[in-house]
Nucleic acid binder design. Structure first.
Ligand SMILES: [Zn+2]
Ligand SMILES: [Zn+2]
Ligand SMILES: [Zn+2]
Ligand SMILES: [Zn+2]
Lengths: 146, 146
DNA sequence: AATCTTTTGCAACTGAGTGTCATCTGGCAC
DNA sequence: GTGCCAGATGACACTCAGTTGCAAAAGATT
């Protein structure tokens, strides 16, 4: 059984090259946003990414952030999460698959992975006659005070 | 291991009584909405509930549907789901817990339940120092064409 | 540098849901 | 049954996340 907080590997997939290959231009805003996503360890939403991007270039617009997030998602370069009805939150793809436990008091997001659960999901889908394209497992909880 | 499509038991929890006991008035719109939720087998969103309610009473307003859904959710009488960033979809509580597989082509929602997965979730949370308050497991897939 | 797209910033728009408020009504008292 | 009134309703203004239309700007290619 595997079940550990997931450490983000120091992955650095070359998304600029991937974009270029897909015939998509490497513009200044895109470079900045990719930089932010590559560095962060958390799961920021579009507004937070926008705020961080502003530090680098005051002229970036929020719509460009939204557009870029959609583009990167379609390319498979990032994952979009919609925790508990809040705004979408993003993280770079390319690391190992993991699911999330959300601390209901602090909002912290803890990553974990259970190969056993992943496997059971496959079995369930197969028995129901489906192939899983993707899935979402979120645990919402509070620190156990003993 | 339990893992079967969940059949909705012919449950009929008496929510009107529960509402009354909580000092909440049984109004015409609420009766209608409870009736819709008690009869449906699917996971309609607020707009769909509104449309079905209109068939019964043309004067019902969409805001009342939203308000009622929030009220019922707070009472624990219904569950709210937010599949894939879409609008909230609802179902009556009171049946057995289950999770959902969403057919990406048709939008159909198939219910299933795996006690093994439920148990593994508990273990994971415990090891991370958390108590699970609730969780969400959604499989997104396509019918396997063999 | 000139050209041809693609992308950008801005602002106007959409969709889901909430807040405000004058009016209405369910539940109880008589 | 009638009267009362806090709680609920419908209408509509508003918020919030995200999208879209468009003229201007900036990549890529020559
Ligand atoms: Zn997973
Ligand atoms: Zn993550
Ligand atoms: Zn479950
Ligand atoms: Zn269900």
């Amino acid at each position: 059984m595997t079940k550990t907080p997931v450490k983000h590997a120091p992955k650095k997939p070359d998304y600029e090259k991937a974009l270029r290959k897909a015939g998509i231009r490497i513009t200044r805003p895109r470079k900045i946003i990719l930089g932010i996503l590559g560095e962060t360890e958390d799961h920021p939403d579009a507004l937070e990414i926008f705020r961080r991007a502003e530090q680098v270039d005051k002229s970036i617009s929020l719509s460009t952030v939204y557009r870029t997030m959609k583009l990167l998602e379609e390319m498979g370069a990032i994952h979009r999460h919609a925790f508990e009805g809040g705004p979408s939150r993003f993280e770079q793809a390319g690391g190992d698959h993991h699911d999330h436990l959300i601390d209901m008091d602090t909002g912290d997001v803890i990553e974990f992975r259970s190969d056993r659960i992943e496997q059971l999901q496959q079995e369930i889908a197969r028995q129901l006659g489906y192939d899983i394209v993707h899935h979402r497992l979120e645990l919402y909880g509070r620190r156990r005070k003993d």
